[in-house]
Design a protein around this nucleic acid. Structure first.
Lengths: 331, 331
DNA sequence: TTGTAAGCGTTATCAG
DNA sequence: CTGATAACGCTTACAA
């Protein structure tokens, strides 16, 4: 590996001069500069960023932590993060935890040890107190699925209100028998959406039927499982509000296999407006989260934190909208 | 930020001793060790990995370069990479290029400047000669979509043979009129699959109809576009061999909207066995690439390269299999 | 305009 | 078993 010393030797100058040329930081005589540039080219030299970062105490790197990239939802969030980060000179890297605490801690080590300047957590596996303690000295924000006990700035939608609006929409479409396919109380978003679901029913004087609340998860298979359970209950609802588009698709497939027509027999509503909701047959009526914007704003908060421009803890709630497609029918 | 010096001072030992305790590298008296560990705990100290990497000239970090994580196909490949890397002490980070040369070069800079020990390229935007030159001194392998002019070890399937087998399968199912939805000659995999498609037809004395070859891309929308073009041609085939599952789904949706029944009127075959092929209605018959295995083996080659165990350029071709589902019918 | 040298946080060598 | 110190590659006062 060629270092700055090799360049200096070849160009017959000091390493300081080479550094000045590389960073365009002070005046260097044209002739010397050219000699240095020629040497750099000849040796195919690139400055070692470890050395630079160690000296400058900054790396210009950002980590995005998430459970898994197989969840389509996150890809546009990351895109938003990147498009804010790159113009400010930051490079973004994505790290998957696969729901594994150990792996998450390993990446956190990179944070704590200054291998990166900051991180955006899209999901996390650990409890908030631990995280708050461990990461007290580093720059972190949360987006999408924030934990309230992890004390950082956050960007997300108002999950309770979004669910409330979704279920109100179904009610407006004439539905009174509405089931909820959630993910259970390990997910704050699921708890809140269940609250919103109940609130909308109550406000419309529809009793909440606990037999119609299932918590099998976000995935396609979760939708299948929840549908099977629902079918075993006897009476069927006319609509199902699902925690995710994948879950909605799973529900649709399981119901279709039992000769239940969507939306003629049962209406289905998804959540997130992932590509799946557009391409499924029938296409899925869903609630669009502003994924790109969530990422963009989260990165903005992180930059402010890194620069010391804003030391407050902010909680941004962004707008959402219902996207009407084919899976919900007026009755 | 607390450094090793602070720990040494608090524990009343030298920094060397602290380092020995951290790395468990030499014998340290139990009593001293405990004092050091107590100090580390009290100061909540983590060693700065920049310093360590600079000293050791290795970072134990691997980059995975790809176009975009929104392509489901890659998520299992990355999983395979991770599961080989982690037990060897390596940490994996994913970097998206979004088809942008500039961004790709930025990540390559991390490679050239020793911020990471190596990289697996799943896709690349630049021409092979440039890459070969730029990255001659670093540890790199390619997987999935290798460029032959980028001289590295590669892991993939035999795309021509896989396409040949897929089309032969359709022929065995009684189809003689078979269209091809490809991605065009910017993708080596597309070129090769088109070759395989033509070869299978010729071997069965079926003339290749250039009107039935479309190159709109890998995406869902590409499938929609290709279908629209196909419908404008007049005569329809009885089967379509698609370059990806997304493309197949797009084709199915566009055809369904024109009241063409899948698989009764036209059979559709996808490629990759992504989750979409399982969950779509009807489910999509497809060719399963061993995604996890591709990633795992690519990482193995990379480790051998990093360790200097194997300096050859290897080209691994892994097995694939046809997964029969609902979108192809015997006629 | 250029060079010298200190220092970023580690680890490894060499003495003791 | 422990400490002092050089070195990794770079940037930046300070001096010349």
């Amino acid at each position: 590996m060629t270092s700055i010393k090799d360049v200096a030797k070849l160009a017959q100058v000091s390493v300081a001069t080479v550094s000045r040329v590389i960073n365009n930081t002070e005046n260097v005589q044209d002739e010397t500069k050219e000699r240095v540039l020629a040497a750099i080219k000849e040796l195919n030299y690139s400055p070692n960023l470890l050395g630079r970062s160690l000296r400058r105490l900054e790396t210009k790197k950002i980590l995005v932590m998430l459970n898994t990239i197989s969840n389509q939802f996150y890809s546009r969030v990351v895109k938003g993060i990147e498009e804010k980060a790159i113009p400010h000179g930051y490079t973004v890297m994505v790290c998957m935890t696969h729901g594994n605490c150990k792996i998450e801690q390993r990446y956190m080590q990179m944070l704590k040890t200054r291998l990166v300047d900051g991180a955006v957590f899209l999901t996390t596996e650990q409890d908030g107190n631990t995280l708050t303690n461990e990461l007290s000295a580093v720059n972190v924000v949360q987006a999408c699925e924030p934990r309230e006990d992890f004390l950082t700035s956050t960007v997300s939608i108002d999950n309770e209100k979004a669910a409330y609006d979704s279920v109100s929409y179904l009610i407006k479409k004439g539905h009174k028998k509405i089931a909820f396919f959630g993910a259970g109380d390990i997910y704050q978003s699921s708890i809140k959406r269940e609250h919103g679901y109940c609130k909308a029913l109550k406000e419309n004087n529809i009793p909440v039927n606990p037999n119609w609340i299932f918590n099998e998860g976000f995935s396609f298979n979760a939708g299948i499982r929840a549908s099977s359970l629902l079918l075993s209950k006897g009476e069927l609802p006319t609509a199902i509000f699902c925690i995710s588009d994948s879950c909605a698709a799973g529900a649709m497939k399981a119901l279709a296999q039992n000769d239940i027509k969507i939306p003629d027999d049962i209406s289905i509503m998804g959540f997130d407006n992932t590509q799946l909701s557009q391409i499924y047959m029938p296409s899925i009526t869903t609630l669009k989260q502003p994924q790109y914007e969530i990422g963009y704003q989260a990165m903005e908060l992180l930059l402010n934190k890194i620069n010391g421009t804003d030391t407050n803890i902010n909680h941004l709630l962004l707008d959402y909208e219902i996207v009407e497609r084919e899976s919900v029918k007026q009755i």
